[in-house]
Simulated scan of single mutants.
Amino acid sequence: MSREPIPARISTSSKVLVERQFLVTVTEPVAIAIVGVGKIARDQHLPSIASNARFRLAATASRHGGVDGVENFETIDTLLSARSDVQAVALCQPPQVRFEAAAKAIRAGRHVLLEKPPGATIAEVETLVAMARSQGVSLFATWHSRFATGVEPTREWLKGKTVRRVAVTWKEDVRRWHPGQAWIWEPGGLGVFDPGINALSIVTAILPPVHVTRATLEFPEGRDAPIAAQLTFAGESGFSATADFDWRQTGPQTWDIEVETDEGRLVLSKGGAEMLVDGKAVLADSDQEYAGIYRRFAELIEAGESDIDLSPLVHVADAFMLGRRSVVEPFED
Rank of each mutant, 00 (worst) to 15 (best):
I227A: 09
G65I: 03
R146N: 08
H315F: 11
A90L: 07
M275C: 02
W247V: 05
E74N: 05
R42S: 04
S84Q: 11
G272P: 11
A234V: 01
I184V: 15
I76D: 05
V137Y: 08
T213R: 07
S11K: 13
F297M: 01
F99S: 04
T25Y: 15
I293D: 06
A108D: 11
G188D: 04
A317Q: 11
G238A: 04
A148L: 07
L158P: 03
E4A: 06
P95V: 06
E302G: 08
L91N: 12
F73W: 00
S240K: 02
Q288W: 14
V89H: 14
F239K: 00
A141P: 07
T250R: 09
A241N: 05
A132F: 09
E4P: 00
T25I: 14
R296M: 08
E305T: 06
V151I: 08
F140K: 02
D85Q: 10
A130L: 09
T154W: 12
S14K: 15
L113N: 10
S240H: 04
A123I: 09
D173T: 01
S81G: 12
I202D: 00
R248W: 14
G191W: 13
A101F: 15
R20I: 06
F99M: 04
L139A: 05
D256N: 09
V70Y: 05
